[in-house]
Design a protein around this nucleic acid. Structure first.
Ligand SMILES: NC(=O)c1ccc[n+]([C@@H]2O[C@H](COP(=O)([O-])OP(=O)(O)OC[C@H]3O[C@@H](n4cnc5c(N)ncnc54)[C@H](O)[C@@H]3O)[C@@H](O)[C@H]2O)c1
Ligand SMILES: NC(=O)c1ccc[n+]([C@@H]2O[C@H](COP(=O)([O-])OP(=O)(O)OC[C@H]3O[C@@H](n4cnc5c(N)ncnc54)[C@H](O)[C@@H]3O)[C@@H](O)[C@H]2O)c1
Lengths: 211, 211
DNA sequence: AATAATTTGTGAAAAATATCACGACATTTT
DNA sequence: AAAATGTCGTGATATTTTTCACAAATTATT
């Protein structure tokens, strides 16, 4: 499984770097410095250089980085040649927004199937993605290992257990419930209410520079 | 502005604690230990105790924490008595999902107005929230200082500038663009594509325990 | 009343992350 | 060809965050 020496903080920034490099490449830019990149992605330039350095010497002193080369490097590092299929569970307000959004642009990830319990939704297509009944997980999951969870919080634990039983080992959880999973399953929580509240908290309690 | 000695990592967890304490309280629970809380929110119990300790000695040795007391404490710390109004800009797929979601439960934050450029949307109500034209920011913002940004990435910078000019100093940015703001404005980015990609990256490169 | 079991709060240590600052080298300019 | 400029890669340092581990206090049990 390669050298997992790369700090987690770095790993989280990789997709961000990748996207901006892709933008630059499409704009026809040939070279970029850590300083420029820093301004674009709002990450300190020393941090960017440090991040890149975990993968070896990718740049050239006095010049910067070759966009195309760096992009190719990240493409393979982020496994952008192979496509990862993702299932979405809970095609409600939030889930539907995700289904309608094409994550695919510059991206190797595709939501290819959705599951819901509502019979009005089951059997329909949302932007080309078929919606199956949650009881069909077993037949329709077909080896998909990653799921986006957008069901009501009260259902989160039950659905999680089902998903894990069917072999899912990665869950992006949008419900406010902190779900319990076995050790071999990784969960990332995105808690929108908490994000909003903590932003407000920071505004009130952490004064910023007066410009 | 009180003692901003509280670590940022702690501040980010406060709304999470608050929500779970609220749940416990509604369930009629009178006391809770850092260990129980830890299992519920998936944060190490020592971290929880440390977090709480920044606010003084809130618990009792051998007993734990009194739910009601702790809840009251957090309510005032998180300013849960006063309501913060938030504006949403870009009532598209994602924006509409937010408008339909009641953040209000257990929460002091309310999305009270939305702005869009689409004339089909302007003038309508989405779940009771009026949608105004983006050109009406000046008249309709009425002192709102926090905004959720769910416009297309290409519009992000222009809209941000407008918002900042109108006095907004906190932005929750869902666009993939890393927006540029003056020092006195705080931006939190939620980059859903990055979250999904980094989850997939971790799954491939960071082997987990085999249970 | 004595003993056992809990559980906090926190010093101290460890781990993770970010930043500084500069030598080395490449490019660009004069 | 020399000088000036730009930029990386990284050792060292600083900062932030997490975790360990235990005395002290409280509660529960016998
Ligand atoms: N919408 C938001 O802005 C928002 C913000 C923060 C958090 N969330 C969280 O995201 C989750 C989804 O929110 P939403 O607004 O889309 O809710 P929603 O009610 O619109 O959608 C939930 C969907 O899950 C489906 N569902 C219910 N039980 C199910 C089951 N057992 N199996 C499969 N599907 C089932 C419902 O039919 C519905 O389509 C919730 O947990 C919510 O707390 C949403
Ligand atoms: N939908 C998702 O799942 C998802 C996921 C990740 C990121 N995002 C990002 O979130 C943002 C919104 O996504 P979406 O799917 O809701 O897009 P959308 O196109 O459905 O919504 C965008 C809305 O912004 C409005 N708009 C356009 N220009 C405007 C302007 N100048 N002023 C005010 N309003 C304007 C449009 O009328 C539309 O209603 C995008 O930046 C997208 O990249 C969305």
């Amino acid at each position: 499984m390669e050298q997992n020496k790369i700090p987690q903080a770095t790993a989280k920034r990789l997709p961000l770097y990748y996207r901006f490099l892709n933008n630059l490449n499409q704009q026809g830019k040939k070279r970029v410095s850590s300083k420029e990149l820093s301004e674009a992605v709002k990450v300190d330039s020393a941090t960017i250089r440090r991040d890149f350095s975990y993968f070896g010497a990718l740049g050239k002193k006095g010049y910067g980085y070759n966009v195309e080369y760096l992009l190719g490097f990240f493409r393979s590092t982020l496994d952008h040649h192979e496509i990862t299929e993702v299932a979405l569970v809970g095609a409600g307000n939030l889930g539907t927004a995700f289904l309608k959004y094409s994550f695919m642009k510059n991206n190797n990830i595709r939501i290819t199937k959705a599951f819901d319990a509502d019979s009005n939704k089951v059997g329909t297509d949302i932007d080309g993605v078929p919606v199956y009944h949650i009881d069909e997980l077993n037949e329709k999951l077909e080896g998909t290992r990653v799921a986006i969870l957008t069901v009501p919080a009260s259902e989160a634990d039950v659905i999680t257990e089902k998903l894990v039983n069917e072999g899912v080992n990665g869950i992006l959880n949008f419900t406010p419930a902190r779900i319990t999973v076995p050790n071999h399953v990784r969960v990332h929580h995105i808690d929108l209410a908490v994000e909003l509240q903590s932003l407000v908290y920071f505004l009130k309690h952490y004064p910023l520079d007066k410009e």
